[in-house]
Nucleic acid binder design. Structure first.
Lengths: 248, 248
DNA sequence: CGCCATGTTGATTTCTATCAAATTGAGTGG
DNA sequence: CCACTCAATTTGATAGAAATCAACATGGCG
């Protein structure tokens, strides 16, 4: 499978290593979660030829706001933060992309946000224009993308409620519960440990808070015996508390 | 055109009067702005048969969060607020729909927000399931809907930045400038008066503020000679101020 | 072992929310 | 036409949640 992985254009080596072309789709661990679930066996082999597995190391950027969108990506492992920045340095993280999430749904030639690897990330890459041509010829794939887009839109609306109307405590409760649900979905079964690969600053920028408020609120929850803090994450002690304080 | 407008099922008379079926699309004043711009002449006559013009009076609901989505709508005039509510009464307005905007992009059978007429509203109504069948058979219409959805998504991300990271002053400056742009688009030419059909409470719920803060901030801008307050709206006195303080 | 990034904790400030009255103004009926 | 009403808005005083400013602790890693 790695027959090409040692022949990589120089400019990609730093943060992004090219892996083997194709023949992976049929074994893809995130197909059930991703856009590709809409694609049948015959189309899949065609998609394989279009795709290339890529790796981004922690803290590297998949792309930046100002970049032209040459490629689109299907995340297969790891966590990516989606960031909008203001000229004075203020940041808003609009979401975290995980296994199964697609970056480039709009098929626009320009990104309107940056994507940065929170952990080491693997993603299936397609040339944007080629993928667009393919989806133009496959109405059910376009429909699946549209379903993904409108689902994202619904999540975005949830997040507007959170940002505009919830307290710091409610924001954290909602965030942790949502993260638990997403890990459960990715893992395919209930999980006990809620991994928190993103730092406090990322959580703050996602919730519209400061790092200090995030830290204080989580530690208050700990003192109140709502959760325990473990290496790399947290564990719910009082799940009902989170259900009661979270948005939906 | 109003051949049916006096024969209306009782339950619709209160807030929503049924108007004539079809034969309006070709003269539609918002076609250039709407989904329907993707539809050719032949398809248009078919769409006409599917559509019905509806009227909603000020303060009435087009639909509520908990309703099943029987219909989808293309707004042709007036302003609609899109609302998410929390059990305790807190509200977040996620957007305002105006001429050319489509409600029901997701084609889901359930709404995830309420739509309420801020002014008297006219909208072109389609049966959801019929519209879905139609769009399933018209890939370029589906693509247009997808473009609308991803554009909305981008606006939603803008709004997250506003809610999470802007000050009250910046929120208002952004809102007023954005409103100016939208009226300009709807009217088809530059406008001087920025109409504010929505009340202070709606503005507050859109910007994640209280009514008092909205009032104080606008009046401060007035005292600072940034704008003048006129009946039904405002007028910029210092446009550069708004450009400088608004998000993008 | 010590360095530096990351996270925690404490003191204080500030912005916006909240609470509480006025004021305005559109609509109504005498 | 004018007084009256009620909702919407403005204005003022105060409170409070989160931000800011400032150390200090932790812990992974060369």
């Amino acid at each position: 499978m790695d027959r090409n992985s040692d022949i990589v254009p120089f400019h990609e080596t730093a943060s992004c290593a090219h892996h083997a072309k194709g023949d992976e789709c049929r074994f893809c661990n995130v197909r059930r979660l991703s856009i590709c679930a809409a694609v049948d066996a015959e189309e899949l082999s065609f998609l394989e030829d279009l795709s290339g597995d890529t790796v981004f190391e922690e803290k590297s950027a998949l792309f930046r706001e100002e970049d032209e969108a040459i490629s689109v990506y299907n995340v297969t492992s790891g966590v990516v933060r989606l960031v909008r920045s203001l000229p004075d340095g203020r940041r808003q993280i609009t979401g975290f992309a995980m296994a199964g999430d697609f970056l480039g749904l709009s098929l626009n030639t320009s990104w309107s946000f940056s994507a940065e690897a929170v952990t080491d990330v693997r993603a299936c890459r397609f040339k944007r224009s080629t993928f667009e041509d393919f989806s133009d010829r496959k109405p059910h794939l376009m429909k699946r993308m549209h379903e993904f887009a409108t689902h994202e839109l619904s999540l975005a609306q949830d997040h507007m409620v959170l940002l505009g109307r919830l307290t710091a405590e409610e924001k954290l409760a909602t965030f942790l519960l949502e993260l638990k649900r997403r890990w459960t979905r990715v893992e395919g079964h209930e999980i006990g440990l809620i991994k928190l690969p993103m730092g406090r600053q990322d959580i703050a920028d996602y919730l519209g808070l400061t790092i200090e408020t995030v830290s204080r609120t989580i530690n208050q929850m700990h003192r109140d015996r709502r959760l325990v803090i473990v290496p790399d994450g947290i564990r719910f002690v009082d799940p009902a508390y989170f259900e009661a304080h979270a948005l939906r």
